[in-house]
């Protein structure tokens, strides 16, 4: 690892994510840990989107689909576990579960399957049509979740106790936070490796010039589809964690506003920058908390911030802090 300005910034952000909750434990402010957990989970969702948006240039306004699917996977499994009603009795008996290690892979697989289908259909188009199709899928899932009364419909589903993880007491905020942070770090590591791999190069190339990519024997559509599936799976995992944080899932997890928010995190932080989504989500959650306490119209200030960033720093805050172009070592 070479000590570039970007690496230093990434290190500072990581250190902050480790130290702030520890400080919160010392001064006994558990709510700060909850806020930090929220920021970390949103970061994870945005890291997922950043693979599609930043590396692949796919402007998906439907990533809440995966966030919601992850959430509902967790919610439905936990609902069946806490009510002792099996999920299926035929052809084989499948019961609900409260084990995170079962819920997570399932949330990712279900999100990945949805991403595959949505990607397959929407990648036939590009530009504004791609945005509209992903948005349309988002709305479809949103209204479906509202009308699915078996799982709470509009009211959502409450989960009494947080899911379990071996050797960890997930109900202790700092311990649950540690799990989320570890997953975020893993996702960032995968993202960094992916960007440097030959697949990542091909994806970057496909973003920049579709025709030329074909001319060198690569199929841009399948490359983008794979990236979209990986992206959806990561955002889905974030959804499962978010449901566990709130012990509640509702159709708002599918809402297009949430898709927009995930994208806003990335735009604030820096599109295509490794820590862009993380910085963006931290700032969003911080502003939401502090400005939200001052005025219910806090989104006006967020809008202003977004405007300034888009106008004056095309690389987002990461670009503003460490320079625009990524450094090649």
């Amino acid at each position: 690892m070479i000590l570039t300005r970007e690496n230093i910034l990434n290190f500072v952000i990581t250190a902050g994510l480790i130290l702030v909750p520890i400080y919160a434990v010392i001064v006994e402010e558990p709510f700060t840990i909850t806020l930090a957990t929220r920021a970390v989970i949103f970061s994870l969702a945005a890291v997922g989107l950043n693979i599609a948006l930043g590396l692949g240039g796919m402007v998906s306004l439907g990533h809440a689909v995966f966030f919601g699917l992850g959430g509902y996977t967790m919610g439905i499994l936990a609902f069946h576990a806490q009510s002792y009603i099996p999920l299926f009795e035929w052809p084989i008996l499948i019961e609900g579960t409260k084990q995170m290690l079962v819920v997570w892979p399932l949330a990712m697989i279900i999100s990945a399957i949805a991403a595959f289908v949505i990607g397959l259909l929407s990648l036939r188009t590009g530009g504004v049509y791609f945005i509209m199709i992903t948005l349309a899928f988002g709305q479809m899932f949103f209204f479906f979740s509202i009308s699915w009364s078996a799982y709470g419909g509009e009211d959502g589903l409450s989960i009494y106790v947080r899911n379990q993880f071996p050797l960890v007491n997930t109900l202790v905020p700092i311990q649950f936070y540690a799990i989320c942070l570890a997953i975020l770090m893993l996702a960032l590591w995968i993202n960094a490796r992916l960007a440097k791999s030959s697949f990542g190069l091909a994806l970057s190339a496909a973003r920049q010039n579709t025709e030329r990519v074909r001319n060198v024997g690569l199929d841009p559509t399948s490359i983008k589809l794979v990236a979209f599936v990986i992206s959806g799976a990561i955002t889905g995992l974030a959804g499962a964690l978010f449901a566990d944080l709130n012990r509640f899932v509702s159709p708002t997890m599918f809402s297009w506003q949430l898709s927009g928010e995930i994208m806003v995190f990335i735009i604030i932080g820096g599109i295509g920058r490794l820590y862009g989504p993380v910085l963006g989500a931290i700032i969003f959650v911080t502003l939401e908390h502090f400005l939200g306490g001052i005025s219910e119209y806090w989104l006006v200030f967020l809008g202003l911030l977004l405007l300034l960033i888009v106008l004056f720093s095309r690389g987002g805050l990461v670009g503003l802090l460490v320079g625009r172009e990524r450094v090649h070592e």
């Binding site: 190069l201 970057s204 190339a205 920049q208 025709e211 074909r214 001319n215 060198v216 024997g217 690569l218």
Partner: peptide, 22 residues
């Protein structure tokens, strides 16, 4: 087109068009 490229047809297109961010 990606299949014919895989079969062994290489094109240097008019106007170069490298992947500029790589």
């Amino acid at each position: 087109s990606h299949r014919v490229a895989q079969m062994g047809l290489g094109l240097v297109p008019e106007g170069r068009r490298c992947f500029r961010d790589l």
